[in-house]
Nucleic acid binder design. Structure first.
Lengths: 138, 138
DNA sequence: GCCATAAGTGATACAACATATCACTACTGA
DNA sequence: TCAGTAGTGATATGTTGTATCACTTATGGC
């Protein structure tokens, strides 16, 4: 995951993408900017009672589409959002606390590419997730 | 995925697991026994209007827990059920028609095990999915 | 074959996560 | 300043399930 320091300022990102900077988006940007680990959409909604559900979901989607956030899931399927780093990567997810870390392994990509050749058809994507109980939770 | 011929008879499976064979379960077993590819729970519910939602979901869960069915997801997160083969495996999923195929690659397991050593914490599981557009859909 | 009983059932409510609609508001650029 | 469009929040709806609960029934022991 991009560290707090590396992270682009969210309001800048949204403006650069041509979106308007509105008070709800500023609130969201400020809140998300200080989030570590992963979070659920509902948590954000609770923390920003003045911002409507639809707006929270809309903005999260915007940020996911822009590659700023990444949407993953815990093993039980509960969706989590976390900051993303622009490069292609996979996730290590703590099944207990939901913390998400990224990893990049060219070997994984090579392997999947090789596998792609074996199956007929055109590969459109892949997903690799490793579930752990993190050191803090042990 | 287990081929139609290889597939154990579902009613036998349920009985062997100690479950009662009831009319709704027989209907489900007959319907699922003829399914190819993957399907959604809601499709089953529509096809069996005499069987309640709860019963369909309960029975699907039973079969997933028993290792007969496997629950995966399309790239957009829409859940799909497909027949499963008992051994550990991963999925190749057609993002267009939802067809699910299994693959086994010991290399993948070895790689994930190696990765597990690098991250702190205890590995509790993993998920690897390859999304394609299958030959039929091209 | 009968019966007790535990397992199973369906209707319905609820829950989590998200999108659609729509009248209203407020940025923004001209 | 002002028109036009992007954005907003309330609310309804959709999807995918799980919980509850009164009712029904399959099954094993006799």
């Amino acid at each position: 995951m991009a560290t707090l320091a590396e992270r682009p300022r969210l309001d800048d990102v949204l403006e650069d993408l041509g979106y308007r900077m509105t008070p709800p988006r500023r609130l969201l940007a400020r809140l998300l900017g200080n989030k570590a680990g992963s979070f659920s959409a509902e948590a954000i909604i609770e923390e920003l009672p003045t911002v409507g559900r639809a707006t929270v979901y809309r903005t999260l989607k915007l940020l996911v589409d822009a590659g700023i956030l990444c949407k993953t899931a815990l093993p039980d399927g509960a969706p989590r959002y976390s900051f993303d780093d622009a490069r292609h990567h996979h996730h290590v997810i703590c099944a207990n606390c939901g913390k998400v870390e990224e990893f990049r392994k060219p070997v994984v990509e090579r392997l999947l590419r090789a596998m792609a050749k074996e199956v007929g058809g055109a590969v459109v994507g892949h997903r690799v997730e490793l579930y752990i109980t993190c050191a803090d939770c042990l």
